[in-house]
Amino acid sequence: MGHAKHFVRLFGVLAVVVITFLAVRAQAVPKDYGTLGRFRASAITDAKKREPRHIGSEACSDCHDKINKSWAAGKHHTPQCENCHGPGMLHVKVMSEDSVDAYPDQIKKNPKALRVTSGIQECEWCHFKTFERPSVLKSISNVKEHITKTGGTYTAKSKCTDCHDPHTTVTKK
C-alpha cells in the first residue's frame, strides 16, 4: 500500500483536527448544558436571580404609612405608588444607606432615586382626552380651558396638583 501513504497521513491530519475539536468542545460546553433541554440549565437560576425594581405599595407603607393609608382609602388606588413615583428598589436602598454602587449613573442623576413628578404629566397619562380611550375615566382636553371653566386662574406654572390631591382625588381649596 505504498502508493496510499499520503492518504494515511491525510487521515492522520484529519484525526488531529477532529480530536482537537472534541477536546476544545469538552472544555467549552457548560457542564449543565442539556440537562433540562437544549440550553444551559443554570440560565434559569440566573434569570430568577435579578432583584425586582418595583417593590409594591405595601413596601412603601413601611415608611410612608400615612399617605399610604389615605391613598388606599381614597378613590385613586388603581394606580399604585410606583405608577407615578417610579420604581422604589433603589430609593429604599439609598434611604437605608445600602450599597448602591451598582447603579452609579442613576444615583448621580437623581439622588433620591425616584421619578421627579411634575404634577401634570402623571395626570395626563390617563386623564387627557384621547379619542381611542374607553370613556371610563374623567378626562379633560385642555388644562387652561379646564382651569378657567372651574373658576381658577391659569398661569404657566399651573399644575393639576394645585387643586387635586393625586393620592385621594379630593379637591383642595
Binding site: 418595583h54 417610579g86 380611550r133
Partner: peptide, 16 residues
C-alpha cells in the same frame, strides 16, 4: 377593551 393607553405598562417594564 379595557386598555386606556396610559403607557403605565411600558414605563413599568422599561424601569423594571
Amino acid at each position: 377593551t379595557k386598555c386606556i393607553g396610559c403607557g403605565s405598562c411600558v414605563r413599568a417594564c422599561k424601569a423594571e
